[in-house]
Design a protein around this nucleic acid. Structure first.
Lengths: 237, 237
DNA sequence: CGCCGTGTTGACTATTCTCAACCCAGGTGG
DNA sequence: CCACCTGGGTTGAGAATAGTCAACACGGCG
């Protein structure tokens, strides 16, 4: 199996075999994690950065009143906390949805990589830019899209990202989030999320049963939310 | 006057006098812009990066149906489009609120800076991290805070950022955004924005008249929205 | 068997939006 | 100097979107 981390980084800047090896050997430890287990807490100090190799995870913040807002869904190849190599303390929580395997890369190894291989700096920076572009698109949706469009947009985004990670066949993929999880992504109540999903099903746009998401009308779903994938791709347009 | 750009960057990584000079001499051109003038459009290709030296500006995206979502408010020292030095095309619009002066830094000069002065890489990366942290906080607010809390949070954030830029005295600053602009930041209608502002005034939390914002109950305003400034500061906690 | 997590439903409430009107200050042209 | 226009702010009424509360269904699992 190709290392998802290398695969992701080469998506942003073509890596030489030597550079790919350098990335792989920067990994100090590989860990497996249970579902719904916290990887990092807000305020933690770490001497390493964590990258997701297998499974689904998220970054989130909890509100003092008890709510939760998910600010990123992490897929294989994503960094859980790249910012930690500059910032001393983690400013949000990261937790798994499913069982996961993660790679731990010591800060020193990151600095070493960056010094020896300028192209890797570029790739790392790119990866944070895409992170930010996704977050921006979520903010736009939270501010200006209806609940229905927001959900449709999220499903489109997930499919495209999972396709890029080689984790989707045709227009189907695994989506191991409960309706409560989806609510915390979209800023909705669980009841409303449930009704929105039913509406998408009623229009024959999707089939979602447990883990399994199938987008049965890809064109229709994209039109509904005016999905434009360009923000997910390095310079497609 | 200290160059706001240098001031901002030294906030993130102490720059030697030589590095400060290097930053200043990377600026190829300084321009002045009218109020409500677009600086960059989505899709533009540029060979330089733009930094704001004076004035207030914003990044925004327009929806196909006609809405607008502002995704960042830019103050002196902020980059309008730092991502452009990696990404070929601009993925959002940037426009001024007030008359502004901006510095144009050619991509080549950025690369030169980064090569000669590793600490500047650090400072630039930091600046994008803070950008992202602000955006994340906005997303959290859009998802999980009431309109009232969102507005309060924005005003707290603006005051702290303007203080850091030396543009606030005590708890007062200039806020040259119309209620329609504020609405496009907070994801509200202008009517609701108006009513929320009245509510803040009624509780004697703020005085806002035209441009002039005075926060008359700083503690109360922070409590109302549970404002915690740590996301704005390099490793305050 | 009974419990728990997840999904579903109905009834009611709250928040926010839309539409339409109106006010007011500043600037412009007659 | 005044009439008019315009952009921003304000108000009221009614509608739409989304939240809350409470109950129930269903499957997996101890």
């Amino acid at each position: 199996m190709v290392n998802p981390l290398v695969q992701r980084l080469s998506h942003f800047a073509a890596l030489s075999p030597e550079e790919a090896r350098a990335v792989e050997s920067a990994v100090a430890k590989v860990k497996t994690l249970d579902p719904h287990q916290d990887i990092i807490h807000r305020g933690d100090i770490r001497s390493f950065v964590t990258a997701l190799l297998e499974g689904y995870a998220c970054r989130y913040t909890t509100m003092p009143e008890g709510g939760r807002q998910i600010t990123a869904i992490l897929l294989p190849g994503d960094f859980c906390n790249l910012s930690l190599f500059l910032r001393r303390r983690m400013d949000q929580n990261v937790s798994t949805f499913t069982a996961c395997t993660v790679a731990e890369i010591p800060h020193a190894a990151i600095f070493g990589l960056m010094e020896a291989h300028p192209r890797i700096v570029r790739a790392l920076w790119w990866s944070t830019l895409v992170d930010e572009a996704i977050l921006r698109e979520w903010a736009i949706g939270l501010g200006r899209r209806s609940a229905l469009q927001r959900m449709a947009h999220l499903l489109c985004e997930m499919l495209v990202r999972l396709q890029a990670a080689g984790l989707a066949v045709d227009h189907s993929c695994r989506l191991p989030l409960t309706q409560a999880d989806l609510s915390d992504v979209l800023g909705l109540s669980t009841v409303h999320t449930n009704r929105i999903l039913q509406e998408l099903r009623r229009h024959d746009l999707i089939v979602l049963k447990g883990d399994a998401l199938a987008i049965t009308d890809w064109e229709g779903l994209q039109e509904l939310c005016e999905f434009n994938r360009s923000y997910l791709d390095p310079d497609r347009s």
